[in-house]
Nucleic acid binder design. Structure first.
Length: 235
DNA sequence: TAGGCCATCTGGTCCT
DNA sequence: AGGACCAGATGGCCTA
């Protein structure tokens, strides 16, 4: 339990010296349950700095390596077990198969069932840690405010932001393809002055779904007014 | 203090 | 049979 508490204290909401009063206001999402505009425009594309900032923010998050192999004798795991006993107000050393809260639990302290249960718990814990590591990796490549003064994205926010980022990139790619096709179709002179080419490019008819990308709208992916479901507040 | 977010435990189900 | 996956329950921490 100590390991778990330490892990919790070092994870999401417990970064020392970080002002989490500032919540990141990214564009969050388009899901079926919350209708939001897909943001357009361009990200600031300094990916490396984004990733570095994310790692800085999340430093210490992946440094917990709970040994799940020797859990049968592990203090932390055993304390977890004890903690769970207390939670349920039921001792596992009581009659096997005792029913409480509609569940039948066969675990007993010191019994083979306990060992099996602990192994299952350890696997599940490891699985969830792997999932969280993957989410951290995802956060590290999503352009959002990785500043230490910005709170780490929640799981749901990470997924929704990633989805929107993919959609936005797809839009950008499509627009670029149109632009290239248009340039090819007009077969410009090899020696066309830059100003002429610039003018021509900016006269390209745009896709209906892609608004003008001015200097104001570009790099403003975070301005979308979207809300998360149950919170009703921006993330 | 309520609500959000999270980690963990647990039992059920599915898959190999 | 054992492991992966999933969802519900629970309790802790943090913020508004």
């Amino acid at each position: 339990m100590n390991d778990d508490l330490e892990r919790k204290n070092n994870t999401s909401d417990a970064h020392d010296g970080i002002d989490f009063s500032k919540r990141f206001d990214p564009l969050i999402a388009t899901s079926n349950s919350y209708n939001c505009d897909i943001p357009t425009g361009t990200f600031p594309h300094d990916q490396q700095s984004f990733a570095n900032s994310a790692r800085e923010l999340e430093s210490g998050y992946n440094e917990f390596n709970i040994d799940v192999e020797d859990n049968s004798s592990s203090d932390s795991v055993d304390k977890n077990f004890t903690s769970d006993l207390n939670r349920d107000n039921t001792e596992y050393s009581s009659e096997e198969g005792q029913d409480f809260e509609g569940k039948i639990r066969s675990s007993r302290r010191g019994s083979p069932h306990k060992t099996i249960r602990l192994n299952v718990n350890a696997r599940e814990r490891r699985r969830m840690h792997d999932l969280n590591d993957a989410l951290d990796d995802l956060r590290s490549v999503i352009p959002y405010a990785h500043s230490p003064s910005v709170r780490k994205l929640s799981k749901i926010a990470t997924l929704l932001l990633a989805k929107n980022y993919i959609l936005m990139q797809a839009n950008a790619l499509e627009e670029m393809r149109r632009m290239i096709a248009y340039m090819k179709s007009t077969s410009p002179s090899r020696y066309e002055p830059y100003s002429t080419a610039y003018q021509r490019i900016h006269d390209i008819p745009r896709l209906p779904s892609v608004p003008n990308q001015t200097s104001e709208t570009s790099a403003n992916y975070q301005g979308t007014n979207c809300e998360l479901p149950y919170t009703g507040k921006k993330v």
